[in-house]
């Protein structure tokens, strides 16, 4: 990644300054680096490697204001990539035992619960990429089950505004989920 530093840093700074095209080029270039990085470390699990590429891209995108321009951008990307991989192993550590002895059968249910919470977390991660208004509307109305009226009062918006935001946000979220794949 060392030779890439100058180019990636230029793209990163331009993207942070609002240049969407530069940001897109950066994400595409980073995706290629990440794919190499994860494939080399996740031998035998190419789907996991691609999942990690996507998770890391989302993290790099949603946390891009955490980049400190006085340090190399490759160090920033590498730290996030490494963190996402450690987090991935931590989340999947308890899975992966196909041959469970009969005595341990109750653990099967625990494992199923874990998977449900994992899936929910993934949605949460995608939810974070939505604009704040849509995210808050979905959180309150669709996830917390608050009435549109109460949510409107809480967010200081009109009721129709909340409805439209929740609807648009859900559509965007569904698209993101379809794109992100299983």
């Amino acid at each position: 990644m060392v030779e890439a530093e100058a180019e990636l840093k230029r793209l990163m700074l331009a993207g942070l300054a609002g240049d969407a095209a530069a940001h897109r080029t950066l994400l595409a270039a980073v995706a290629r680096h990440l794919r190499n990085y994860y494939r080399a470390r996740m031998r035998g699990a190419p789907e996991d490697a691609e999942d990690l590429v996507q998770e890391t891209l989302i993290a790099i995108h949603t946390r891009r204001d955490s980049y400190d321009a006085s340090y190399p951008v490759t160090a920033w990307i590498y730290a996030i990539a490494r963190y996402r991989m450690i987090d991935h192993f931590r989340r999947h550590k308890r899975r992966g035992g196909d041959h469970i002895p009969l005595d341990d059968a109750p653990e099967l249910f625990t494992a199923a619960e874990d998977q449900a919470s994992d899936a929910r977390r993934d949605v949460m991660r995608l939810l974070d990429t939505l604009p704040a208004k849509q995210r808050e509307a979905i959180q309150l109305v669709k996830l917390d089950g608050m009435s549109v009226k109460d949510a409107a009062a809480r967010l200081n918006l009109s009721e129709s505004d909340v409805k439209v935001s929740a609807h648009r946000g859900l559509k965007a979220l569904m698209k993101l989920m379809a794109d992100a794949g299983p």
Partner: peptide, 20 residues
């Protein structure tokens, strides 16, 4: 390729307002 679609979706997302 799905990752490319994700990149498109992310790139359309406007830059975050600067945090304190």
């Amino acid at each position: 390729m799905k990752t490319d679609d994700l990149i498109d979706a992310l790139a359309r997302d406007p830059a975050p307002p600067p945090a304190p």
